[in-house]
Amino acid sequence: MSTEALRVGAQTLAGAYPEVGANAEELLSLLRACRLRSYAEGEDLCVEGEPSQQLYIVLEGAVQVERANDGAPIRIEVRAPTLLGTMGIVDRSRRTATCTAIRGTALAATMDRDVFRTLIRGTDGRGIALRRLMLTVLTRQLIDGNDRLRTLVASADRHGEGDPLRSALLRAGR
């Protein structure tokens, strides 16, 4: 895969996540520490229940994230640029969802766990870019998740179902 693809990817990330505070060169150096890989439509990036061995920086395309949820699957669609596999690579838990390329080919820079563990502790441009990119993406996901949880509770309140859902809110610490 060409250097030009990485350069475009770095510029796309810098534009989509200005809060990162890393410049395109630092993001480019981060992407150079990854392996660039294409996923055909329908191909899995990762599978629920498997050990978390990689971080995925999705640079092009769309991915379906599906959680089995005891036979009542929850599905969302995410679009590039984004990160997948962030939580598992941090806390070493197993995958909580299956991620599948949809609507054509997806392009992702994949980072192995060993590379992650080295870079995440670094004070060079790659370490700074990696930490801040992950912090920015997780912050956005947390804000979106909290909004969704509050909406569920508010909706339940309107239908007289608020107590058990408020319990869920409290358990989530929100």
């Binding site: 998740g145 909290n146 509770v153 989530a172």
Partner: peptide, 11 residues
């Protein structure tokens, strides 16, 4: 985020 996601599933 893990707690929030679990809260959403439970809710």
């Amino acid at each position: 985020l893990r707690s929030t996601n679990q809260g959403i599933v439970e809710a």
